[in-house]
């Protein structure tokens, strides 16, 4: 698809001399409809680079979007339809123009960006899913700048150098802010995902299993931090009340490391269960962990421990007076 080149532009040269009065009509390249740019009522001189850039963005909206659609970022995100990419590009250009209109080119919280945040989030998510790092996504966003810059340079070629430079700087700031917004959006998306998964982990990772009448067990898997151990303690104690359990087994086979903090959490849980009238057994301490705990000088002396969950269950059944008859010596057998 051909892009409007500088030669086909018919935009009025009278625009070069500063302030104009009344609406001005522009016609340009591949867009036959006439676009009206209303006069800016803010009172400031029209020569302000920010407003200049805004007007430029509004005039060249279509062209910029067309060029962006050919950039790797848009091509990769909108694989199905080029029109969709152009539409997305237009939305981004509109947002930039709106931010420039509010003269908040450096402000990533500017209201103008609100509308495109979702768009940017979608784009960055889709790129991260393709395996790109955040830095690479940011680089792809940076690649959006040159096409716009070229257009701007071509358009303001006849203007004084200082003016051109001021406009370029503003545009560059604007594009930089866009990058910041995109990265921010991507980061907050990631943070939201992490928060959601942390909650899910808390819910999922602490099932209380009823092993027998009056025996409940919690198989702990993964690292124990204070938030998790709090949840474990609460769910275990509630299960003790609900199921009327005399014994609670804490199985730590799935806990990779035991340090003083984890040991303290275990002791607290055991003590709380004991206060409620249930006996707590800790099982599944692996040999290496047992060695580490001794080296660290952790005292689990008041805690009843067993090597495996099976041993712990056996102990509890024995204490409850339940006899398990097994045909083969040493095996749990069928009941």
């Amino acid at each position: 698809m051909p892009h409007g080149s500088g030669a086909s532009l018919e935009w009025s040269s009278g625009r070069v001399t500063a302030p104009f009065h009344g609406p001005v009509r522009y016609r340009y390249g591949n867009d036959d409809e006439e676009t009206q740019v209303p006069e800016h009522e803010a009172g400031g001189p029209l020569g302000t680079p920010t407003l200049e850039v805004r007007d430029f963005l509004r005039r060249r909206r279509e062209q910029i979007a067309q060029r962006w659609a050919d950039e790797p970022l848009f091509r990769a995100v909108f694989t199905l339809s080029r029109d969709e990419a152009v539409e997305a590009g237009k939305a981004v250009v509109d947002a930039l123009a709106q931010v420039a209109d509010a003269r908040r080119a450096e402000d990533s919280d500017a209201a103008g960006f609100t509308g495109v945040r979702e768009q940017l989030a979608r784009m960055s998510t889709s790129r991260s899913r393709a395996g790109l790092s955040l830095a690479q996504v940011s680089n792809e966003l940076a690649a959006l700048w040159p096409p716009v810059d070229n257009l701007l340079a071509a358009e303001l070629a006849e203007r004084p150098v200082e003016e051109l430079r001021a406009c370029t700087t503003t545009l560059s700031t604007l594009m930089g802010t866009l990058r910041v917004v995109a990265v921010q959006t991507a980061l907050s998306e990631g943070q939201a995902l992490i928060d959601r998964q942390r909650l899910q982990l808390l819910e999922v990772a602490t099932p209380v299993i009823r092993l027998w009448d009056g025996i409940v067990a919690v198989p702990l898997i993964g690292t124990l931090d204070s938030a998790r151990s709090q949840v474990v303690m609460e769910t275990l104690l509630n299960a003790v009340v609900d199921q009327h359990a005399r014994f609670a087994i804490l199985d730590i086979t799935g806990v990779p490391t035991v340090d003083s903090l984890v040991a303290q959490h275990l002791m607290k849980t055991v003590a709380a269960a004991r206060l409620m009238g249930a006996e707590c057994v800790v099982s599944g301490i692996r040999p290496a962990i047992a060695q580490t705990m001794v080296h660290l000088g952790l005292d689990l002396g008041s805690v009843l421990t067993r090597a495996s969950l099976a041993d712990a269950l056996g102990y509890c059944l024995h204490e409850l007076g339940v006899a398990v008859s097994s045909p083969a010596a040493g095996g749990a057998g069928h009941r």
Binding site: E234, L237, N238, V241, K268, A272, A273, L275, M276, G277
Partner: peptide, 15 residues
């Protein structure tokens, strides 16, 4: 023998 301590009470005492 102390009987029927609630979970919240037990946790508080331990804390």
């Amino acid at each position: 023998v102390v009987a029927g301590m609630r979970p919240a009470v037990a946790i508080t005492l331990v804390e």
